[in-house]
Design a protein around this nucleic acid. Sequence first.
DNA 1: CGCGACGTTGATTTGCCTCAACGATTGTGG
DNA 2: CCACAATCGTTGAGGCAAATCAACGTCGCG
Lengths: 194, 194
Amino acid sequence: MAHQILKENIAKHVSFPEKELSLFCNSFYPVQLAKKDFLLKQGDICSFEGFVTKGCLRVYTLDAMGNEYILHFAIKDWWITDIDSFTNQTSSHLSIQALEASEVLLINKNEKEALYQQSPNVEKLFRIMTQKTHVALQRRIIRDHSLTADDRYLYFINTYPKIAQRLTNIQLAAYLGISHEFVSKIRRKISQQK
Amino acid sequence: MAHQILKENIAKHVSFPEKELSLFCNSFYPVQLAKKDFLLKQGDICSFEGFVTKGCLRVYTLDAMGNEYILHFAIKDWWITDIDSFTNQTSSHLSIQALEASEVLLINKNEKEALYQQSPNVEKLFRIMTQKTHVALQRRIIRDHSLTADDRYLYFINTYPKIAQRLTNIQLAAYLGISHEFVSKIRRKISQQK
DNA sequence: CGCGACGTTGATTTGCCTCAACGATTGTGG
DNA sequence: CCACAATCGTTGAGGCAAATCAACGTCGCG
């Protein structure tokens, strides 16, 4: 079931011969997470590349003052890892935590490297996925520079309504880079306009 | 000469057999650019992946109001493309322009695809480079959210002194996401502190 | 030379933050 | 299952970082 979601996700990116696709997907093992469980803690080394099949997680970092900055959320059909820590086996700058009971499929570094050897399609898959994320990150930087807090809020809830639904104002604020009080004021302003 | 710079750059990312490396590098052709020349214009389709061997360029986008947002600069040893437009052959959101007389080495999409077929090392090279950029973009988003304009300015000139040297306040402002007047005020504040 | 692009500076405004208080909602241990 | 704590959301007052606007000086270039 969970593996089926993964298969369909991969098919969106590249076309794989069914045999390779199954081999690839079967290298992933499921992990159940309770609310507030950590998949990765800042400072640890990220041993996995993950795919969410249920629930919701956040990927974030804390600065020296304890302020929290959320890089992104991940619900069903999203990939999660600290790509830097994972590929270089260095201490992670990021934490990944379940915001609710969640299920993820994980693959270890050794397994992934082995698959790279076995199938050029795997290398291609990850190159393409990384490219897509790259484009998304570039666009987010532009949005952060060009839009007001109000418009970034609206962009997020319109673009990711299924994620926005599940978040507290505090979490959304830590993603948008604004205070949670101001999120509250934006919501009021918008509801009055209607 | 220019190709030598490219070879050394690639060697920083992955180890290639010399023969493959030469084959790869020879697929790039040099292009000379005068100051203000465009390598890519917003709306066009990006046909190349490029590597700068001389000069300085900027990668930027204009919004509907004509405001300019600079994604990054590129001097010697930097790669440039619109990865979205290039890989998907879609209309580009970005422009790339020479800020001074520059030289770049370009490779076309067809050539690059051919190389992907010939050598798995090429696929790996681009996956690794894209991953590195990915990490850099993530960190930039965090910096944009966590640092004041003063600190982002300082970070940039300390991290990229060779680039900062060549830029006008206006260009730097369009990169940092602040007004050029404020850049001027930051500079004054810093010089007074010393 | 004269023009246009750039840099500087000050006055004013504004978007968003901080702090504080309070109500509502959720979670939890007895 | 309830009581109480903890977390979250709302609101207002006041403050600050940075934008905007405007004026002016400088420099490089056709």
